[in-house]
Structures are given as C-alpha cells and as structure tokens.
Amino acid sequence: MTLLFYSAGAIALIATLSVIISTNVVHALVYLIISLLSVAVIFFALGAPFAAMLEAIVYAGAIMVLFLFVMMMLNLGQATEDEERAWMRPSLWIGPGVLSGILLLQFVSTMLTHDVTLAPVEVSVRDISLLLFGPWLLAVELASMLLLAGLIAAYHLAKK
C-alpha cells in the first residue's frame, strides 16, 4: 500500500506539472485524466474505495469528457498552439512562482509539526450511504439544487 501511495503520488505530480506547462490542449487534457486517475489510486490506498470509484467515473470520466467535447467544438488548431508557445515566457512565471512557493512553504511548515501515521481502515459504501441519507440529507438536497442550477445556467449560457 505504501508503495502504491508513493508511486501514484509521483505520477499525479508529474502529470499535473505536465498539464500546466503543456501547450496543446488535448495533450493537457490527457495528462489531467492521468493525474485524476492516479489520485483515484491514492484514494484506494487510503482506504476510500467509494471515493476512488467516484473520482474515476465522475471526474476522469464525465467531467473530462465534457472538456473533450468542448475542445472539439472550439476546434483549436495549430495557431493556438503557436500562440501558447509565444506566451510561455520565463519572466511571466517569476511572480506567480514566488507567490506559489511561499504558499507551499506555509502549507508544509504547518504540516511537518506532527507525526501521526495513517492506518487505513476501509470505509464501505454502506457507511457513507447511511451518513449521506441520514445526518447529511440536507447537504445532498443542496448539492442536487446546485447541480440543477448548474444545468440551467450551462444550458442558458451555451445557447446561441
């Protein structure tokens, strides 16, 4: 499991970095799917198979397919790729890089103070369902409302 966790983490990191420095949209999308799938493996390693399934089906499946469809509609060709390459100036990365570095430093410095190891205990679908349709029922309703609102908004916005 440990090996699984670290190897999947490494893949996720590399894939993500590839996304943000890639110039081709479709390539970036494929890297993103790889990143999401490796996160799903991490979930599995952490004893959350339900979350892993959702990550693979909803994120890597549905949402990314949505992206893919839009890419196809936009039909961005070679011209866009050249443009992307032109925008990739190193000077552009200095400010955001410094800020992101500081932020990462802040995160890590708060996390390195404790030393508790994880003993992954599998959380079954049943437990989550009992929680979801018990104490978190209202949150489920709100989520459904949010999805409905997103549906209507997307329909309205994408209309001619």
């Binding site: 990191l13 993500t16 990143s35 952490l46 955001p96 990462l104 508790v116 190891t117």
Partner: peptide, 26 residues
C-alpha cells in the same frame, strides 16, 4: 500493512494545489 505518514498525503495535496494555482496565475 505499512503505515503512511499522514503528512505526506497532505503535502501531496498541497503540492497539487499549488501546481493548479501556478497554472491559474500563468
């Protein structure tokens, strides 16, 4: 079962987050 230090999981999340942020900014 081997133990994974839970900080490592969080640090991975933080690194991924900052990568995304870098993408948004650049």
């Amino acid at each position: 079962m081997d133990a994974i230090p839970y900080e490592h999981g969080l640090i991975l999340a933080a690194v991924l987050f900052v990568c995304g942020l870098l993408g948004v900014l650049t």
